[in-house]
């Protein structure tokens, strides 16, 4: 459990990092919090020839909100969200979700952006980003591009990032006071990856759902946005009956993966339960 040999760079600026990425491309990997990459290297499942450690790049370490929404720099740690980073429902949701990610020490190092770049299908941040219409800002020596989250994930551990690109920022649209959110996750132990989870956000006006966001994670090769079910929610009341209907349809609409921790049937059950509980929380 010692990594294979690698070269190591620790650039102090984004431009230096991008220059290194441009030079080494496929041979290199970015090291952020190291909470996924380092174990993979110790198991020799990942054998990058070169590591580019971005932890000294102060300009990537920020999280701030403006009228366009929330901007999360690449070095923002999970633990940054223990406190509310923005007023209103979005900040509250982030802190509620953060507590489900791994354990306290891991949250001090692991990054939000690293979670997205790593693209674990059971990552809470990937589900949150998928459900809430995040945009990923990728930078390279060639320039910058914005990637809609729907185009970002290609599958388990696979994204649209090019080898020379760095995920510099994640942007989330603002969420006004009218929104209510709910999140439910089932994992074997505190801090484990989810076997099934759901995130719901509803904007309810006078008892009627005006806007809805609903996503599930830990189920297939990436987080899934349940847009059809969102449409069904809009225009009616978030009643118990409606929630049960949505849960049933979520159950029917997913085709979960199976592994040693959960069979497809079991994951399907968890999806229904998670959707029901997330919606119930959001509608409360």
């Amino acid at each position: 459990m010692k990594p294979a040999a690698f070269d190591y760079f620790r650039p102090a600026s984004l431009s230096d990092a991008l220059a290194l990425l441009a030079k080494y491309k496929d041979d290199c990997k970015i090291l952020a919090g190291g909470q996924s990459l380092v174990p993979a290297m110790n198991f020799r499942l990942a054998r990058p020839a070169i590591l580019i450690d971005i932890n000294d790049i102060a300009e990537l370490d920020y999280v701030h909100a403006d009228d366009r929404g929330l901007h999360i720099g690449a070095l923002t740690r999970h633990a940054a969200f223990h406190r509310r980073v923005v007023d209103g429902p979005l900040g509250a949701l982030f802190s509620a979700v953060a507590r489900h990610i791994a354990h306290y020490p891991i949250r001090q190092r692991g990054t939000f952006a690293g979670s997205l770049a790593h693209a674990d299908p059971a990552s809470e941040w990937c589900l949150l980003a998928t459900t809430l219409d995040a945009t990923v800002v990728a930078k390279s020596a060639r320039g910058e591009r914005a990637i809609a989250i729907g185009d970002f994930f290609n599958g388990t551990f696979s994204t649209d990032l090019e080898p020379d690109e760095l995920l510099a920022e994640v942007h989330l649209p603002p969420m006004g006071q009218g929104w209510r959110t709910g999140f439910y996750e089932f994992s074997r132990r505190a801090g484990d990856f989810a076997l099934g989870m759901a995130l719901a956000a509803l904007r309810i006006e006078a008892g009627v759902v005006r806007e809805a966001r609903l996503g599930v994670g830990g189920v297939s090769d990436r987080a899934i946005r349940l847009r059809k079910l969102e449409e069904r929610l809009v225009g009616g009341a978030a009643s118990q009956e409606m929630i049960d209907t949505i849960a049933r349809e979520a159950w029917a609409s997913v085709s979960p993966i199976g592994d040693i921790h959960a069979t497809p049937e079991y994951r399907r059950d968890l999806v229904a339960t998670a959707v029901k509980r997330a919606l119930t929380e959001a509608a409360a």
Binding site: R188, D244, R248, E265, L270, K276
Partner: peptide, 19 residues
Amino acid sequence: ATPQRIREQLRRAGVATHG
């Protein structure tokens, strides 16, 4: 007695999660 095994028994006994 993992959650999955317990849930499997419940499913067989007709306890659904989606209704």
